[in-house]
């Protein structure tokens, strides 16, 4: 039996919800949470331990969390590490990615996980781990775990992999020399591809050149001369949520007036975000929108002027396309009021 170690967050480890997201890493014997379903599908392998860690603990104390987990791994036999599945949960994707990267880079333990394509963890960690293409919510748990088990069995058995697309994981940027079954040379294949292209027929490139989608930084600007707007992905809305902003998967943004206010008081504003503990915001909404600080910086001459509205959406599980569209819409809207720079606060 080959030993496998699983990693799950506080929620799937059945420690608790957002209120337990600060839970420090724990090593538990056997398979916990989704790892039990994974165990049932593994051949000749046993999940000997499950590491459980709160997502906020990992995000806010990354180094400390990883050191503790490295301490666990050092003492254990491990042929494979399986994390998640993390779906489209941003913090969980980050946690799974960090743990996979640790296992692979420090201990040379192959690591696999599963994430939805919208999870920012995919781009951050796909070179350090096998990240299977997963569903966006836990409703897809059964299929995601089955896919993880299939790849885990292959890796553990030492079977050759057929490449990222065929195996269903995100490309790791590794080039591998293979001999094709039909022995057709590159020249023949290139001419074929060209003929397909000329005839307007579908064809598939054999090597996708990756393009980094980076935006070069803009030159510095002096905020004391500018009109500034504040945007937040925290789901901060007036009490009662008049525009029915959703708790996740925003497809629209809202804006609320702050021009005549100096502070945001408890009870006046709340967060409807479904992806973090909103108790702090309920206690003092300025933990999300530091309005008194912004106004003070205006008075102190550090900000030219403050646009009289803040813009808000709910950042979790928002699709990439929607995020891009909403960013463009917000920029267009604040430009009507001659805004020249934006501060964006995320959670």
């Amino acid at each position: 039996m080959k030993p496998v170690i699983a990693y799950v967050n506080q929620f799937f480890g059945q420690i608790g919800g957002e209120d337990k997201a600060d839970y420090a890493p724990e090593l538990r014997t056997g398979a916990a949470g989704p790892a039990q379903a994974l165990q049932a599908q593994l051949k000749d392998a046993e999940i000997t331990h499950t590491i459980i860690c709160g997502d906020n603990f990992m995000a806010s104390h990354t180094e400390q969390a990883l050191e503790q987990i490295a301490g666990f791994l050092k003492e254990l036999d491990c042929a494979l590490l399986a994390a998640g599945p993390a779906f489209n949960a941003g913090r969980y994707g980050f946690s799974c990615g960090e743990v996979c990267k640790l296992a692979w880079e420090r201990f040379h333990i192959p690591a696999l996980t599963s994430m939805n394509e919208g999870n920012p963890g995919v781009e951050l960690y796909r070179k350090s781990a096998y990240i299977l293409k997963g569903h966006d919510t836990a409703a897809g748990m059964r299929k995601d775990v089955a896919a993880m088990a299939a790849l885990a069995n292959k890796l553990l058995a030492g079977e050759p992999l057929l490449g990222a697309d065929a195996e269903g994981y995100f490309g790791r940027g590794i080039r591998k020399e293979v001999i094709l079954k039909d022995h057709r040379s590159a020249a023949d294949r290139a001419v074929d591809m060209l003929l397909h292209k000329l005839r307007g027929e579908p064809f598939q490139t054999e090597f996708l050149v990756e393009q980094e989608d980076r935006v070069p930084p803009l030159p510095p600007v002096d905020p004391s001369k500018l009109r500034i707007a504040f945007v937040t992905t925290s789901g901060l809305v007036p009490a009662g949520n008049p525009d029915h902003l959703p708790s996740g998967g925003s497809t629209f943004w809202a804006r609320y007036e702050i021009g005549n206010r100096e502070t945001l008081e408890k009870g006046e504003f709340i967060s409807v975000h479904g992806g973090y503990n909103t108790g702090y915001a309920a206690e003092n909404p300025m933990v999300l929108l530091p309005l008194d600080a912004l106004k003070q910086h205006v008075r102190d001459g550090h900000i030219g002027s403050l646009h009289p509205y803040y813009y808000v959406l709910t950042g979790n599980q928002t699709a990439k396309g929607d995020a891009v569209r909403m960013a463009r819409e917000i920029v267009a809207k604040v430009r009507e009021d001659a805004v020249q720079a934006i501060i964006l606060g995320s959670t």
Partner: peptide
């Protein structure tokens, strides 16, 4: 993603975030 899109549009932007690697 939003921050990148805002910068792409030519609007200077600063991102206040906790998960800085993300």
């Amino acid at each position: 993603m939003m921050v990148k899109e805002i910068e792409k549009s030519g609007m200077p932007v600063v991102h206040m975030a906790n998960m800085t690697p993300v």
